[in-house]
Design a protein around this nucleic acid. Structure first.
Lengths: 239, 239
DNA sequence: GAACTCTTGTAAACACCGTTCGCTGAAACC
DNA sequence: GGTTTCAGCGAACGGTGTTTACAAGAGTTC
């Protein structure tokens, strides 16, 4: 089983400790505290030693982003699996609630991953859970309330591309869906749902609501209701 | 007119240059480049001299946030004033478009002001334009399509507080509105609109849409249409 | 005008940061 | 056993925020 040599095992272990230390610093004291020297101090080594594992401070931060995405995806998948209702509406609710809870519990991580003017983030890991769920949602929602006519002509090209991304994401998990249930109208509403979900969570995490919301959870629930209704679910299906 | 002494004028001038240099550094090279020494270098002075004007690097960044908010508010007001249609729907569109354009043109400023896990930001300046416009929108939208029953009971307390904030914001500009046209249902939809507006703009600025959107503007326009419809406007009124 | 205070700048220093370089010592390999 | 590989070290460079002591000018008071 352990084909790795002793050296390789030690290296992997150190690398793991580096990531763990970096993560702890981010959580405890924010992005600016994730310092090569601070990480090294936690491991009992010196800063230059870290260059045996990462090319630069920036590369280490990038790795940290990937780890965060992976962890969040795992948390979302866990919450998805914990829902045994079998109803897609409940699954969507479970994942959206999990996303909000995760963001509120990990504001520094959320800010780093979702609100940094960075190039291309390692969002592949986190995106897959959203994509898979969105695909399932659409696939099992047979009520075709949204015709393609509803979406502006200019958006068709982009939405078709997203349609392909969705189909691929779902098929990776063994589910195949036809083009008829995955029309552009529904895809458009999925994107709009992502806008609202992200908007609410980011506003709440960053405290940028136009007034002090003492208990934002009911507002979130209310928004979810509206989202599910807009996307084609009837109230009776989601309760 | 110039009651300020010569010393006070010089100090104000230096302070202005400091803000200007800090802003330029932020725009050109990002948050991490806004350094006391870099600012001092631009002014031809030394870093410790800046402590005669600001208590710390953090205080200077806070001032920078306020400046950004003020500038953005000015830009939004300018775009609001440029709309001579007299129709609130057009005014809302003008301001929302201006907000998106400003955010896309100033990503670093947007990230600093709208997406930093900071305490209480100096959002008063920027918020007023939104609040005023939201108040006007509601005041002139006489179709009471949203009853208070639509919003969850738990939200009433917070929405009532926001209602008061709106009334105050509008009355500061000389307009008074009755409680009847500013019911909780409408206020709720205003908050939801802010969620969607912020969500779209932040996703676009940070590049976090689930797929590459080649031309996001039509999607933004489409969302605005939906927002205005949701909030109670008829299509005929907004064209 | 001289003496005094207040203000604004400086230079030096401290601790910290990312990064590079040459070196060591031990593990791995042949 | 000899050689290679490699993780870690220490020193160093230039950068950072911040504090301190000090100088020089402006403004004020007598």
């Amino acid at each position: 089983m352990t084909e790795a040599t002793r050296r390789e095992r030690l290296r992997a272990e150190t690398e793991r400790e580096i990531r763990q230390a970096a993560r702890a610093l981010l959580v405890e004291s924010g992005r600016d505290a994730v310092t090569l020297r601070a990480i090294a101090r936690k491991l009992g080594i010196t800063a230059p030693a870290l260059y045996r594992y990462y090319d630069s401070h920036d590369a280490l931060l990038r790795q940290l982003c990937d780890d965060i995405c992976a962890d969040m995806a795992a948390a979302l998948y866990a919450n998805l699996a914990a829902d045994t209702s079998g109803q897609v509406g409940c699954q969507v609710r479970a994942v959206c609630h999990a996303f909000r809870r995760w963001a509120l519990a990990h504001p520094q991580e959320f800010a780093l991953v979702f609100a940094s003017p960075r190039d291309p983030i390692g969002a592949d890991q986190f995106g897959s859970v959203f994509l898979q769920l969105a695909g399932q949602l659409i696939a099992s929602n047979l009520v075709a309330t949204h015709a393609d006519d509803d979406v502006p002509e200019v958006l068709h090209e982009d939405l078709v591309r997203f349609q392909q991304v969705l189909v691929d994401a779902v098929s990776e998990h063994g589910v195949t869906i036809g083009d008829d249930v995955l029309n552009l109208g529904k895809i458009y509403h999925v994107v709009q749902s992502w806008v609202r979900l992200y908007g609410h969570v980011a506003l709440e995490v960053f405290g940028r609501f136009p007034f002090a919301v003492s208990n934002p959870e009911p507002m979130f629930d209310s928004m979810l209701d509206q989202m599910l209704t807009d996307i084609g679910f009837e109230e009776s299906e989601i309760s």
